[in-house]
Design a protein around this nucleic acid. Sequence first.
DNA 1: GCCAACGTTGGC
DNA 2: GCCAACGTTGGC
Length: 135
Amino acid sequence: MNYWLLKSEPDVWSWDQQCKVKSAEWDGVRNYQAAANLRAMRVGDEAFFYHSNIGKEIVGIVRVVKEFYTDPTDEIGKFVCVDVAAVRPLKRAVTLAEIKAKPVLSNIALIRQSRLSVMPITSEQWNIILKMSDK
DNA sequence: GCCAACGTTGGC
DNA sequence: GCCAACGTTGGC
């Protein structure tokens, strides 16, 4: 199983909204690298839910419940989306500033490719961030 | 509000 | 196919 990180602007789609629904379509991705990551997701993979712009922190964990299919919001039909469901909130949100301050996380795509909205997370990075959310 | 990073578009 | 111009993302 693989780990991922999904970015969302909370005034467009927030963690609270995600929690209120059984599952949600992760649509609107219009970047090839992000789309390639969506295509690589498998049912059961888990992803951090990150609030960009407002908050700038990882707030929860979602699980992929439906693998990629053509994004219905894309008129050209080139891009894909997946469905995700909330698993649980983090005990404590982990901020971008904290992640930046950790040398072991300096390779994370969140920092290295600040504009990418769907990115892979290594199991090592996943566990470090989970541990940070526990304190 | 600004700007760096970076992706896309279009003229040549 | 190159690259300048432009648009968008997202942190600060």
